[in-house]
Structures are given as C-alpha cells and as structure tokens.
Amino acid sequence: MSNESPVISIRNLSFSYGTAPVIENASLDVLQGQVTSFVGPNGGGKTTLLRLILGLEKPDSGCVEVFGCSPEQARSRIGYMPQHVRHDHLFPVTVLEVVMMGRMGAGRFGLGGRDRQKSLEALDKVGLADMAAKQYPTLSGGQRQRVLMARAIASSPELLLMDEPTSMIDAASQNTFTHMIEQIRGECGIVIVSHDLGFVSSIVDQVVLVNRSVRSCCVQNLDSQCFESLYGERLRVFEHGAAGEKEGAL
C-alpha cells in the first residue's frame, strides 16, 4: 500500500458555530494505510473536524478533500462510526439489521444475501457474531458501540472514521478493538477520535492534536510539551511499555 497519496487533505480550514470559532486555519494530511488519532480536550473541535471531513458541516473557509474529491463525492468510500445514535429506544431492529444499514448506499433500494454475509463478517470482526439476532436497543452501551463499529466496516471502506470508539468499552473488548484495527490497517486509512491517548498510542502512526488549532505529530515524537500546548497545563505522562511513569516537563 502506497504511503504517498493523502486520503484526507485539509487546507487552511476554519469553522465556527455562529460566532464561536471551533477550528481555526487547520491544515492536515492523512495518508493511505495510516492510523491517525485526533486527540484533544472536550470542546476542542475533534468531532467537528470529523464532521467536516464527512461533509456534514460546511467550512467557513479553506477546503477539505477526501480521495481528491469533495466529502460528498467521497462518502460512499468512507465508513463512519458515530459516538452514539439517538434512536427511538423502542425501535424494533435486530443487531444484524443495524449492521446491514452500513451496506446501504446511493442507488441501492434493497439489500441481499451478499450484504447479509458481509455484515455477519463485520460482526464477527468486532466479536459479536453470536448477537446478530438480538434486539439492538436491549444491548449494553459498549455492545452498541461495537455494533456501530461493525456497521462502519461492513461496507469495506477505504477510509474509516471513528468517534470515541472505545469510550464505553471494557478492557477485554478494547483488546478485540485493537485486534480489529490491526486486521484492517493497511486496507484503509483510519482516523480515531479519542480523549484516551494512552490507549490509542499503541496502535496509531500519527497523532493530531486538536484544540481549535490543529497540530500533527509523529507518535514517536510526542512529548509533554505537545500536551502542555494542547491542554494548557502540566500533565502526567505515562510511557507506554515502560514499567513506571514519569512526571512531565519539570
């Protein structure tokens, strides 16, 4: 897989909700086959950046290109996992039916056996193969997140965007998640929005610090100064794979 062509290319992007600026003059590339994580404080604009990449929000200035096209044109090649879905809590729908919605697309009116097969495979990847016939609203929060994950990968996307995919998932399922990312990395570009850098740093190649401004760093070069600039205060930095922890920026 070539690492040359950017999957997502953002140039001088600014966006505000009314008069409140959310993203200011952001530029960013996400490369094919790379795993990128957007990290930053609450309200820093991580989810908004994801929505701009999906074309669900329109930039005030600057541009977003996905696969060299507009987000709207590129959508069919993107798998998207929202943080949660505000659905009717009595919606009568099975887990498999939810995952199959990931196979819908422009020009498609019905779904068939192949869609069912692909959806079952996606469920298997997130470790929920035995839950296909269960009612979606009766699942726990963590299980629902994994179903939404399966829905995002059911279309075999070339770019996978996930918003806080592990926020409600327990430790065992986090391993399933890491395993799934390892399985599909290389097949597609992956962007993970997360507040939990400690968790994602073991699987990502690039970290993008989002706090109104956007700054990308290679995961090896992350240091406590990055975080101070991001959160505006001293933080405790945990070193992955190391036995202990060290105090940041003394």
Partner: peptide
C-alpha cells in the same frame, strides 16, 4: 414496502444515512 430499507435506515439514524449517500 419497496423503499423499506431506505425508510428504515432514515428512521434509525438520519445522519448515518446521509453519510452513506442516501437521498
């Protein structure tokens, strides 16, 4: 009934249906 899958996707999660390119 002909548009069952579309109406179902729209009713369950309108934003996701938009992202999937449904009208």
């Amino acid at each position: 009934i002909g548009l069952y899958n579309r109406f179902q996707a729209l009713s369950f999660d309108e934003e996701f249906a938009t992202v999937r390119g449904l009208p």
